[in-house]
């Protein structure tokens, strides 16, 4: 038998090590890959989601009104967990967006209908992002995502630094004027955990707002997401919202 030299020995040892390491790491790497790419509602149950059908919204504002009642939000403008925006796309290319009192008082019909190419309503609320910027920037852990996918604020623990309000790309947070904490949509967590629907969904007269369990393959929301072509707001932000829109125009931000 030929004695092997140092170079051959090191080469063989390195290759053997790599072969074993590759096999040993394959399973955990595949698991990690699955963990990061698979939606969380495949492994967690329930996992709440939300959908808005823009083609059904009539801009009545019952949702924003019900939200304020249900969650005891101050009535004066500027404090909204959910609101309705009206988009007016003019033939000139100009885009106008308004939301007087969040749509609670309704919208008078537009004054100059001849100049308008298209107009529609867009209900807005917290997107309950899978990778939520507001949760990431909170310095004390007062904003968090629950095991069922809802982004909440711990009112006792929030220090009121307002960093999350700056961080939200969707403008869905505000500073609660009396409690002095950051506040946002909870998907009516106190309702959904008791088998009810969020107040905005409950009060939408046209069924434009939908709420449901993403982990239920037979659920109405899953069926809606599978049968309709939907889009999220600002997909380039990588926030992965669990709120999807049907009939979203490119002008909607």
């Amino acid at each position: 038998m030929n004695p092997i030299n140092r170079r051959q020995f090191l080469k063989t040892a390195a290759l053997t090590f790599l072969a074993f390491a590759g096999r040993a790491l394959a399973a955990p790497l595949a698991a990690a890959e699955k963990f990061f790419h698979e939606p969380p509602w495949r492994r967690k149950k329930p996992y709440w989601g939300y959908a808005v059908d823009i083609t059904k919204c009539i801009g009545c504002g019952r949702c924003a009104d019900a939200c304020k009642t249900e969650n005891e939000i101050p009535r004066e403008p500027f404090y909204f967990r959910t609101w309705v925006e009206r988009y007016i796309l003019r033939r000139s290319g100009e885009v106008a967006v308004d939301s007087p009192n969040g749509g609670i008082d309704g919208y008078p019909p537009p004054r100059d209908p001849e100049s308008i190419a298209q107009s529609f309503f867009v209900p807005k609320l917290c997107n309950h992002c899978e990778h939520s910027p507001c949760e990431q920037v909170c310095p004390v852990g007062a904003t968090f995502k629950t095991e069922d996918g809802v982004v909440l604020v711990d009112r006792k623990y929030c220090i009121g630094c307002r960093y999350c309000i700056q961080a939200c790309p969707y403008g869905c947070r505000y500073f609660h004027p009396t409690l002095q904490v950051a506040d946002k949509c909870t998907l009516c967590y106190h309702r959904i955990k008791n088998g009810k629907r969020p107040a905005c969904v409950e009060n939408c007269p046209t069924g434009a707002r939908m709420f449901g369990d993403l982990s239920d393959p037979e659920g109405a929301l899953t069926k809606f997401r599978e049968s309709e072509r939907t889009q999220v707001l600002k997909p380039h932000m990588g926030t992965e919202p669990k709120l999807v829109y049907k009939g979203l125009d490119k002008e909607v931000r």
Binding site: T69, E70, N71, E72, H190, R191, K193, A199
Partner: peptide, 9 residues
Amino acid sequence: EIRALKQHY
């Protein structure tokens, strides 16, 4: 705590 909040509707 959030779960125990009062329901209105």
